[in-house]
Simulated scan of single mutants.
Amino acid sequence: MDLLEQSLLDAPIIEKGDYEYFVHPISDGVPMLKPELLREIVIRIIRKAELENVDKIVTPAAMGIHISTALSLMTDIPLVVIRKRKYGLEGEVPLFQETGYSESEMFINDVEPGDRVLVIDDVLSTGGTMKAILDALTNDIGADVVDVVAVIKKAGETELEDTDYTVRTLINVTVEDGEVVIVDAHGDG
């Protein structure tokens, strides 16, 4: 069993209303993220993702930043962070994100028409954030989304089901009776 699998099986579960939520260093920043787990995840992304001719790694703040930073350092591909705060810089593109538990506006800077991008995120759950990001990158900016990778997918349908977007994942899980259950240890794609 690899470190990612074991870390998910060991993840504490908290209840948010009727929702059972696992707490994990990749998705929440707690418990502590060990370098060997981050290294394993980045190596798995490098093996799984289409990286050839990618101009930029794009990730939403905040929990995609540590994964994407490590990936950028290992691949020498520049990193763009989609922020939850408006800076008003030239070319800034707003997008509205809605997830199963929140909604907010995010802002993309430094992605130009024709840029070939790799989108990285920590968790794919409802797909609301990812769909908003991919729509903004492709439709509003005109970037070429080369590949999309989420480290963890929570099992179930997402808002991406009836779209042309494909998200590769490293591991697919669900939470049942207060425990994380590995649905697919190798993820999608």
Rank of each mutant, 00 (worst) to 15 (best):
E157I: 09
L170A: 10
L9P: 05
F22R: 00
T126E: 00
T75M: 01
R85G: 04
I41V: 15
A143L: 12
V181G: 11
E90A: 13
D10A: 13
L160G: 11
K56E: 05
L51P: 04
V80A: 08
V93H: 03
G178Y: 03
P31T: 10
T163D: 07
I152F: 11
L118Q: 02
Y165P: 14
T163V: 09
G100W: 05
E5N: 10
D76V: 01
L8V: 02
N139A: 01
G156A: 10
K48G: 01
Y21W: 15
T59P: 06
G64H: 11
L8Q: 01
T163P: 10
M63K: 13
I120S: 06
I171E: 00
T99E: 09
D115M: 03
V93D: 02
G100V: 10
A11P: 03
E50S: 03
Y19M: 12
L89W: 13
L9A: 05
G88M: 09
A150Y: 07
L118H: 02
I182Y: 04
T166F: 09
K154H: 13
A49P: 00
M32Y: 14
G189Q: 01
V93K: 11
P78Q: 12
K84G: 13
T138G: 12
D2Y: 08
E179Y: 09
F22K: 00
D18S: 15
I152C: 08
R116T: 04
N53S: 15
D76L: 03
I65Q: 08
D55L: 14
S125T: 09
E36P: 03
V123Q: 04
A11W: 01
L33S: 04
K154D: 07
D177W: 13
M130P: 04
V148N: 10
T69R: 11
F22G: 00
G88R: 12
G88F: 11
T138E: 15
S7M: 01
M1T: 14
S7R: 02
T163C: 12
V151F: 10
S104E: 15
I182N: 07
L4N: 01
F107S: 10
E36W: 09
L3M: 04
A136C: 11
F107I: 09
G156K: 08
E36G: 04
K86E: 15
D162M: 02
L124Y: 00
M130S: 10
L89D: 10
M74D: 11
P78F: 11
P94Y: 11
D184F: 13
D144T: 14
V54M: 11
G187I: 06
T126C: 00
P113Q: 01
N172R: 14
T174L: 11
G88W: 05
V145P: 09
V149H: 05
L9T: 01
E20F: 04
V54H: 05
L134I: 07
H66A: 15
T129P: 05
V123L: 13
G156R: 06
